[in-house]
Amino acid sequence: MGLILLFNAFNGLIQGAFYALMALGLALILGLNNTINFAQGAFMALAAYFAFTLVPYTGFWGALIAAPLLAGVIGFAVETVLVRRLYSRKDPIYTLLLTFGLALIIQDMIRTIWGAQGKPLAIPGFLNHPLSNTYFFLTGYRLFVVAVALIGTGALFAVLRFTRIGIRIRAGNADLETISALGVNIYLLRTANFIIGIVFAGVAGILAAGQLGLNPTMGDALIMPAFVAIVVGGVGSLVGSLLGGLIIGLASGITTAFFPAASEVVIYVIMGIMLVVRPRGLLGQEGLFE
């Protein structure tokens, strides 16, 4: 029992790492672009399919770098051609429906180009082996996922803390008008931020595909938990989103050990409890008169 619990907890944490990566990308775009990017899951699938096509030419490692960047290029186009037009509209419904429609289009494109059938993504052989015979569940790939999630998150926070663009993104999150008045080109800043968010989704997509394989709707299963992670962690806090992702992943993993059928529902229950007990989430700011 102990081993099974450990196994499920560890599995949950890995799942939580996916959620956290997704939630970070979503939270970035939610913060500065003031947009719930419903297409985040579709971008994730898109990057994974790019990787699938690239692997024969670039190998897994090349694809891991190049595919998210390619998705970022599409993200750049989407932001500059479409999303940007809606920043001036106060009602959030428009960006929500726009990205929802985009998700449908991207999914349908993937289906048309690569087919509706699931496909495996080839990962380097050495990552596939269990690390020891006792802890058979501890494959190299699972550790690798955790490592990439750590590196990605670390890199993001380093960029936000130490680079000029990162500092501006954080300032823009706090007060967009003021940094605009200070002469920062907020259009450019928002575009850059959007791209970073999409690249994050791309990395998460490739990692997920390495474990679960590819299919056009693979993003759907991750985007909802990412929403929940943001609500639980606290809107407006990137660290909160990260924590939220890990918490719901862990909770879902542990629930699997006792009551597998409830493993998805449990994260929504956690969210509900959080909303009743602490509506602003773990690390969220208190909104006046929300």
């Binding site: 003031n34 719930i36 959030p92 929500l96 929403f227 929504y268």
Partner: peptide
């Protein structure tokens, strides 16, 4: 309990449950 975008996120999550 929340408004705007966050209200949307919460409603969708409750629905998915």
């Amino acid at each position: 309990r929340r408004r705007g975008i966050y209200f949307a996120m919460i409603t969708i999550a409750i629905g998915q449950m």
